[in-house]
Design a protein around this nucleic acid. Sequence first.
DNA 1: CCTACCGATCGGTAGG
DNA 2: CCTACCGATCGGTAGG
Lengths: 209, 209
Amino acid sequence: MRLIQAGSVRKPRADGLRSRKAILDTAVLVASVDGIAGLTIGGLAERLGMSKSGLYAHFGSKEELELAVVEHAAAIYRTEVLAPSLAAPAGVARLVAHAEAFLSYVSRRVFPGGCFFLAAAAEFDARTGPVRDAIAEVLGESDRRVADSLRDAVTLGELPDTVDVAQTAFELGAVLAAANAGALWTGSREPIERARVAVERLLTHAAAS
Amino acid sequence: MRLIQAGSVRKPRADGLRSRKAILDTAVLVASVDGIAGLTIGGLAERLGMSKSGLYAHFGSKEELELAVVEHAAAIYRTEVLAPSLAAPAGVARLVAHAEAFLSYVSRRVFPGGCFFLAAAAEFDARTGPVRDAIAEVLGESDRRVADSLRDAVTLGELPDTVDVAQTAFELGAVLAAANAGALWTGSREPIERARVAVERLLTHAAAS
DNA sequence: CCTACCGATCGGTAGG
DNA sequence: CCTACCGATCGGTAGG
């Protein structure tokens, strides 16, 4: 029995994991600029100075590579955006922390092609399959962080219970996505600052509703 | 002198123009779903039941085809979104007409992959060249329609002159783009309705500022 | 991790 | 508009 699929369950060596990480670091950069469909095994291998079959030693197929790339990008997104906001106190403070973390992540160009998951969502909006599902999971986590924080703010009495949580979450998400798109398209920081103003205005309006 | 580039200046026959239109109609549909980079001469030829060299009779290169596709999509966008809003009276009415025309265009799926130019902007935000420039031209026309209408509204006394035109235009654009992205991603009409609510709220806020 | 290969498809061209 | 072709590159595999 042990021999069945022995290759896929065997423990990778330390340098195997290191080279897997090196591959994914590069793949995530390429995918953020050229799109996930823009990833090619050959192109990636050349950038890394290894052969195509060297890549196939780590990922059995293109789709496995794509999934690993999305998971690698997810870990970065959680570290850069979701973790910092969770460190802030629940409610309005966490909502503001989320917006600030997201705008910082966009303007620091953590991914050179802007927010990996907004780009991926646009690329995969007409497709189905495991890659789309993995992208949806991360987008869902981010949206839930916003909606949950709004609900917490109501529970804590920071916002009135007349606030439309889903509507406010939609508008906050719209403004953050537009900051990303605008910063990429124009190359300026203006969209980032406009998003800050809009978030503040949205929260002021929610507080007065 | 007349013989130089005689081929490219000769007058196309009527059926040549008809088949060119048929090619572009199909190409625009494909590009809206798979992206402009997802267009292939071979794939397009097969869908149209013609040979690859048949396509090269109309477009000398892939980039020429891409430019023609963007221009064809631009004509549709002007007809569906920019023309209807221009028919409305200047000011707030034209602004509302623009938003309604855009949301209608998105929810009627004039392009099956959603707004052609928002998708194209995401795809080309890291590139340079004539295709990006053609996309930028259409996005600029649309943004100008919003900003001009806001300024007209101030001139007409419909909005106070304390309104921040650029900031309001940013927020309106954000909400319309989010309606497109959300409708595509979720497949529901909810983002369209949320955008309507947000536009109304934005205008109410601007009127009271 | 490698070399060496596979069939399929890419954009594009020659010649009609 | 066509057939027939070009070199390059795609994802993937055999065998080491």
